[in-house]
Amino acid sequence: MSVNQEFRPKIVAFCCNWCSYAGADLAGSSRLSYPADVKIIRVPCSCRVNPMFILRAFEKGADGVILCGCHPGDCHYSTGNYYARRRMTLLFSMLDFMGVENGRTRVEWVSAAEGVKFSTVMNDFVEKIRSLGENVRLGDLRCKK
């Protein structure tokens, strides 16, 4: 597939309030840039994200969805991200099983001190989604085309 430079993907980033959202904040105040294609949704903890949120984002037209939380062991609620990790692993694996490119989903651990990591992760992810192009398969899994 040729990379379409004009294509501006829609990216949804779920960021937990305590680490990743603060990390995004730090990226901003440190004047690090990341593409405006990333729309951040703040959640209390990464485990607040029901797997259906991810699917819902795709259904509503997202081309990529990324979940960011505190590093394992550092969750504000101590264990939330461990549960989130299992759920997302299974969900992503299932999407792959159904033939939906698994590059469209990602989980990253970003602490409040990692502004730089936040901006690199986002740049990288947007690049990846740009190369995958527009999401068509995940809009409707009834597969009635």
């Binding site: 461990y82 549960y83 990790r85 299992r86 692993t89 299974l90 992503f92 694996s93 989980v107």
Partner: peptide, 17 residues
């Protein structure tokens, strides 16, 4: 159940992918 428990060194989604 496996989704109501965890271990600290569970595989990362990116590794599984």
């Amino acid at each position: 159940g496996p989704l109501t428990s965890f271990t600290a060194d569970d595989a990362e989604p990116s590794v599984v992918a």
